[in-house]
């Protein structure tokens, strides 16, 4: 469900400068890693993590056949394990949306498309809008846009705000995820500012990274963004989703992200409507861990498909 967007003009919106203490954020994020998740709570967390994955392929060499294979995997993560959830969505380039949509028809799996000249975003506004409209017309349920980091770092906050607001409008019913590319922003203060701008401009989700730049998602940067979401919720009662993407490739780390989510935003966010993992290889490690919980021993990775 999308929330109607009210203001299209940055000048009418006030973005407060929120200062972030980097050392303390890193320390706090590390504390979430000290929770011990075992037994039932681990299985519950692992299944939830699977169900939050945006299974992703974003490569120049993507073909309809590759996308088709990934979409099958999205629905059949590991049939040997009964009642396993599916992933939340598949995430592809706009040119692949039509194929993907066709493959996941009749399931709960959403099709997400990157847009706005992903990953660099260095294109004129008109191209970005066309890119987005094309993906929506092809049937994308969700749009993952990138912000213009260059403009943001120049201090052109109104440009960034208006850009997001326009793309949001072009999305229609599709939910909008706004990629900040935190690895290019430099400081947590700027991550926080970009988060606030994206949220104010109508983002349904804020997302850390394209996966093309390092560092991609980290726990501290995700915490800064979760706290921006929390402040917005405190002030307005409106929920915004969070998607860390890139670099989350093992189950243990995914569980630590969920601990952080659980203790920062709480139960209402603990589902794939409000939290996603952007990842290509996370699912298989989660499956490996679930099998380990079930059988007591680690199985070979050869038993798990790699689509």
């Amino acid at each position: 469900m999308t929330q109607p967007h009210e203001a299209l003009n940055f000048a009418t919106v006030k973005i407060k400068n929120i200062s972030i203490d980097q050392t303390a954020v890193v320390e706090k994020a590390a504390r979430f890693q000290k929770r011990s998740i075992k037994k039932e709570s681990k299985v519950w967390g692992l299944k939830l993590a699977l169900n939050m994955i945006d299974l992703t392929t974003l490569e120049g060499k993507d073909t309809p056949a590759k996308v088709k294979q990934m979409c099958y995997k999205a629905q059949h993560l590991h049939d040997a394990y009964p009642d396993l959830p599916t992933v939340a969505a598949v995430c592809v380039y706009p040119s692949m949306v039509g194929f993907a949509k066709n493959e996941v028809k009749g399931t709960n799996i959403k099709v997400a498309s990157v847009s706005t000249a992903f990953p660099a975003g260095q294109a004129p506004m008109s191209v970005k809008l066309d890119d987005t409209k094309f993906a929506v017309d092809q049937g994308a349920d969700e749009i993952d846009m990138v912000i213009s980091r260059g403009k943001f770092l120049q201090g052109e906050y109104n440009y960034v705000y208006d850009e997001i607001a326009k793309i949001k409008e072009a999305c229609g019913k599709a939910r909008l995820k706004v990629i900040l590319e935190t690895g290019e922003l430099g400081t947590f203060d700027k991550v926080r500012k970009a988060s606030d701008i994206a949220i104010q401009a109508g983002a349904d989700f804020i997302k850390t990274s394209t996966g093309k730049i390092k560092p991609a998602a980290t726990m501290p940067v995700t915490l800064v963004m979760l706290e921006a979401i929390r402040d917005h919720y405190y002030a307005t009662g409106k929920m915004v989703g969070m998607k860390p993407a890139g670099g989350i490739s093992n189950a243990k780390l995914a569980l630590q992200y969920l601990v952080m989510l659980n203790e920062t935003l709480g139960a209402d966010w603990m589902n794939n409507k409000w939290f996603r993992f952007g990842a290509s290889s996370l699912a298989n490690d989660v499956i490996l861990q679930l099998e380990k919980q079930r059988s007591g021993v680690y199985g070979s990775k050869d038993y798990i498909s790699i689509d």
Binding site: I37, K39, K42, W44, L48, M270
Partner: peptide, 11 residues
């Protein structure tokens, strides 16, 4: 919904 209201209780 935090703490006691959480839907995920750690073992």
């Amino acid at each position: 919904k935090l703490g006691k209201q959480s839907i995920w209780q750690y073992a």
